[in-house]
């Protein structure tokens, strides 16, 4: 092995310029109206983030990762901690529409960005076609990689609505799964592409 492309955040980040400047008043995080102890202190940065359509404000330490922010402070556990080193892809979220490993993105670097997690994919009680396809094709086993896998697939189908099987395999190579052997995951993404095309037609 060794030819797998590891997803680097620099390839994918399309982040609005940092809007935090001098004179910016630190604000209470909108979420729960409460600043966790770990986030208080002199070395904090104010941070605005839209998560699943909801605008949130935080005051964070500079070393906090986007993964920690989403898991521990927004409390969305569909963003999974797997390796903390950018290899397994369990922590994948869509940052301004691009799939990134949130463990490898500093929260402050995502200031002003839109984040989509798997919790934000369901619209009006309806599953995203990729979610539906994962269920129907047996692409889910333990489910730990599933949110990241689904979000990468959503990003792929946005970039390339008609991917070939090798294209699906290449795009998902940053999301590891130890349960399925990937066969049904690839089938599910191809089926979702098909059903999304039909929906558009």
């Amino acid at each position: 092995m060794g030819w797998r492309g590891v997803r680097l955040q620099s390839q994918h980040l399309d982040i609005a310029p940092n809007t935090v400047g001098f004179g910016h008043t630190p604000v209470l995080p909108a979420h729960n109206g409460y600043i966790p102890v770990a986030l208080r202190g002199p070395m904090t940065h104010a941070l605005c983030l839209t998560v699943n359509g909801e605008a949130l404000e935080f005051s964070v330490e500079p070393h906090l990762t986007l993964l920690d922010l989403i898991r521990d402070h927004v409390e969305l556990t569909g963003c999974r901690r797997g390796c903390d080193s950018g290899y397994c892809g369990a922590c994948t979220v869509l940052l301004n529409g691009k799939a990134v490993h949130s463990c490898s993105v500093l929260a402050v670097a995502a200031d002003g960005a839109h984040v989509l997690t798997v919790e934000g994919l369901v619209r009006d009680g309806r599953l995203h076609p990729v979610q539906q396809a994962f269920i129907e094709h047996g692409a889910i086993q333990c489910g730990y990689c599933t949110p990241g896998m689904i979000l990468s697939s959503v990003a792929l189908l946005k970039e390339n609505p008609q991917p070939s099987e090798p294209e699906v395999r290449a795009y998902l190579s940053g999301n590891l799964c130890r349960c399925t052997g990937y066969v049904r995951i690839v089938q599910a993404v191809l089926a979702a592409a098909e059903s999304m095309r039909e929906e558009r037609a």
Binding site: R80, V122, Q132, T146
Partner: peptide, 19 residues
């Protein structure tokens, strides 16, 4: 038949040990 917990897992409505 599709797995009974598929919907919960596809929407992350499950609590793992780490959660």
């Amino acid at each position: 038949l599709v797995r009974t917990d598929g919907l919960r897992k596809a929407t992350a409505q499950v609590t793992y040990g780490v959660d």
